[in-house]
Amino acid sequence: MPEKMTISRLADAAGVNVETVRFYQRSGLIDEPERPSSGYRTYGNEDVRRIRFIKRAQLLGFTLEEISSLLKLEGSGTCSSTRALAAKKLAMVEAKIGDLLAMKSALAGMVARCDSGAPDTSCPVIQALIDD
């Protein structure tokens, strides 16, 4: 991969679009290089690595604010702080899983009532939403 690249080549190399790169710049997640006399800002491999880091963190559910904190901790020997952020995110994911399992159970019960074939005058799903 070339050391210096335009914003469009950076976006391609990082697997995002140009507007994502610009958004990350406005958000302070990546630096915007100075505009040289040629008029085109250039980016390097470190910028690609940073954008990929951001995207992977987003896939794990980290917010941009949390990612900003992670980036500040990167390489600073503060593994305990990084672990605390990851543990907090894990707890949130586990809570969401619990909520999703409860939703699944409730919906399965509603569908089962519909499938029971009882000659009700009202829809069991609608009735369950009204009653509960």
Rank of each mutant, 00 (worst) to 15 (best):
M1H: 01
M1Q: 02
P2F: 04
M5S: 08
T6I: 00
I7N: 02
I7V: 12
S8W: 06
R9C: 01
D12R: 12
G15A: 08
V16D: 11
E19T: 04
T20V: 08
R22K: 05
Y24H: 00
Y24N: 03
S27W: 00
I30F: 00
D31A: 00
E34F: 07
S38L: 03
S38D: 09
S38I: 02
G39M: 02
Y40K: 07
T42N: 00
Y43V: 06
G44E: 10
N45Y: 05
N45G: 00
R50G: 04
K55Y: 00
A57N: 02
L60Q: 06
E66W: 07
E66V: 09
I67F: 12
S68W: 10
S68K: 08
L71P: 10
L73I: 13
E74C: 05
S76M: 15
G77H: 13
T78E: 15
C79F: 12
S80I: 15
T82R: 14
A84C: 08
A86W: 04
L90F: 07
A91S: 12
M92R: 03
I97R: 09
I97V: 14
A102R: 12
K104P: 05
K104L: 08
K104D: 13
A106P: 02
L107D: 11
M110T: 06
M110L: 13
A112M: 11
D115K: 07
P119I: 04
C123H: 10
V125W: 09
I126R: 08
Q127T: 15
D131V: 10
D131Y: 01
D131H: 07
D131I: 04
